[in-house]
Amino acid sequence: MNVFRIAGDISHLASIFILIHQITITKSVQGISFKTQLLYSIVFITRYLDVTFRWVSLYIFAMKLFFIASSLYIIFLMRNRFRTSEVTKLDTFPIVYLLAGSGVLALIFTYDYSITEVLWAFSLFLESVAILPQLFMLQRTGQAKTLTTHYIFALGLYRALYIPNWFYRYFAEGRFDTLAVFTGIVQTLIYSDFFWVYYNRVMKGLNFELP
């Protein structure tokens, strides 16, 4: 484990705690895309199915269970506890294209035609675009609560930190996971506009507002 990977995973955990904190403190899911959360649940379930039969380490085991459970909990909070219709109105990104596109790409680029490998590839492609409904919603409203932006930033930082981790592992271990690296870079690029606004506004103590 190198420092980039640890920092990335901590950032990922932080993003989830920020989101749950925001929802429970404000008792509202305003500004949060249910569709993005639904996609993350699908990502975690399809990718971490192997938790039931592949042992890597206690760390990986615990993290996988946490990510599956917390994403389902967020879905539950958004659907059953604090659901409002005005949020649904703004959450209009057509995710069926993301799901279908990820499915096709997974079938083309999977390392091996086994169910778990195809699902793994699918989860990578889907994760790379899962934030799009959230960013689309942000675009439509033009502004966001500071906590929401911290959440998106921490989530983006997680994938950004995995890039130096892959460099490190390539040189230290000769390990190179083409699919993970490609989709990880795509995902980080999708965040780049957001990072820019976050850096220029939120980190300077201003509200997140799009020009």
Binding site: S57, N165, D177, T178
Partner: peptide, 10 residues
């Protein structure tokens, strides 16, 4: 095979 990697990341 360079792509035959163990899935040991999150």
């Amino acid at each position: 095979d360079a792509n035959n990697v163990i899935h040991d990341e999150l």
